[in-house]
Amino acid sequence: MKDVLVRSHIKHRISGSFFWFTMLFFYAPLLVLIVFSFNEGRSMNFTGFSFKWYKVLFFDSAKLWGSFYNTLLIAVTSALVSTVIGTLGAIGIYWYNFKMKRYLEVVSYLPIILPEIIIGVSMLMFFAGMNMPLGLSTIIIAHITFNIPYVLLIVIARLSEFDYSIIEAAHDLGATEMDTLLKVIIPMCIPGILSGFLMAITLSVDDFVITFFVTGPGASTLPLHIYSMLRFGLSPAINALSVILIVGSLAMAFMSKKLFKHMFN
């Protein structure tokens, strides 16, 4: 018995050192960004503490704020549309049999498993073929497309916790399909729908590859803007921007945790 305890203790120590190595790996580079965002100079030599780059970021980066606005617009629009389409799709796929169901299942699974670049390239060729000018509208269409499968999966996961007899009961009690949808199905899916929506917002805000292919002149998003900063000249303001985004993602992570906990209890 003692032997087993000692062994499991050693095992724990080994996996523990891997764990803390991973954490160091995760956070050391982010910490470097945070420290140097307060650097007075331009270089990676710390010459003095200053809020200079935050000032540049907030008061002298009109283009960046323009792309930030675009990012929000695209995220909210595409998340709303994909949540509606994905939720209805999930209800249909989970509870009904219909013609071409297998086709729909395959087609809504594929965008998740294919590399992002495939979606980007195919949509670019499609928009070119349709003579659609590239810009915000094509980005929104692309984002709706890659968000739908995720919303679908999340809502289906929620539906699988319920029994179809609830729906039958509603029907037996005289509810029309519309009543059932609005008063029974949607309310009980709300946690799933909300997390699908949140997922869609996150994926949309973070997307670089697909957006890169379907964007047009003048339609920059935050990731596209960061990319051009990385490729064509760094300003230390990007350190400050990174810190704001890291803090933002922390807030998002906390919020979603709270939200999920609240919803599932």
């Binding site: 670089f208 990174s242 985004l245 992570a253």
Partner: peptide
């Protein structure tokens, strides 16, 4: 949750 490009930039 942290932006993908920011994580590249950190490196």
């Amino acid at each position: 949750w942290t932006n993908f490009l920011i994580r590249i930039f950190a490196w």
